[in-house]
Amino acid sequence: MTAKLETIGFDADDTLWHNERVFRLTQERFLDLLRSYAERDHLESRLLDAERRNLEHYGYGVKGFVLSMIETAVEVTEGRVPSSAIGELLAAGREMLAHPIELLPHARDAVEALAASHELLLITKGDLLDQERKLAQSGLGDFFDGVEIVSEKTPAAYKAIFDRHGVTAECSMMVGNSLKSDVLPVIEAGGWGTHVPYEVTWDLEHADAPKDHPRFRVLDDLGKLPDLVAEFD
């Protein structure tokens, strides 16, 4: 018999509100700034390498992204990147940190509906100050019983979160756009993983879906989430 769901975890970026599209727009500015130094594909590859390399130093979020762009600019130009270009990248980062929040379709309705019957947790990666800002601007903060901002989403991290909130993984579901971070590790921890794909996925978040796993679900949008959760009652 399927255990009754007690707790539902939500990812934040690109699950409840738009985020990756802002990164893509800034990356286009970066590519345009350096177009006279290298081909687009080469710049994209070098930037991704820098992001991957810097995750352990800077973590996820805008600040690490900006530092990776600056590092790539210095490397690709062999130190000849003009200070004005560095200034533009820093300004782009500040704009990202001030970008208004735009909720995804059905996000508020789904969260509000489920808050009436389940414990809701926001479980996200990224910079603490930026994630707190986005949650406050989203207007969804009051619906969550807990907010967990972690450096990585691993099976151990999910188990620790569930333990802190007095629930088991078997009675918990994580909802998010990333198979790598929101679905696979929570399934490994013993919970349910529900994938709600976003229009674009960061290259470092790609993973294969566990298609035949009994605790894996896929939804087109958050509007279908309350009905899915009702199946566990």
Rank of each mutant, 00 (worst) to 15 (best):
G139I: 01
V62H: 00
E71A: 05
E199K: 02
L31Y: 14
S172K: 10
V200N: 04
D212R: 11
G64N: 01
S36T: 14
E231W: 04
T154P: 02
R24G: 05
K180Q: 12
L179P: 03
L103F: 07
D32K: 11
L103N: 02
K134C: 03
A115R: 13
V175D: 10
I86K: 00
V183E: 07
A160P: 05
E39K: 14
L103R: 08
G193L: 08
G141K: 04
P210L: 10
V74R: 07
F65Q: 01
E152T: 10
D233R: 15
D221E: 12
E51M: 09
A169K: 00
G190M: 03
E119R: 15
A209K: 09
D11T: 07
A230Y: 00
A50E: 14
G9V: 01
L129E: 15
V111G: 00
V62N: 04
Q27S: 07
T72R: 03
A115G: 13
I8G: 03
S151E: 14
T72E: 05
A207H: 13
F10H: 04
R133G: 07
T72S: 13
L43Y: 06
S117C: 11
K125S: 13
I187Y: 12
R217Y: 15
S151K: 15
F23L: 06
D220Y: 00
E75G: 00
L222K: 06
S138G: 02
L135D: 03
G93T: 10
A113L: 00
A85F: 12
A160W: 02
S151I: 01
P185N: 13
T124E: 03
P185L: 11
A73D: 08
G193W: 04
A12T: 01
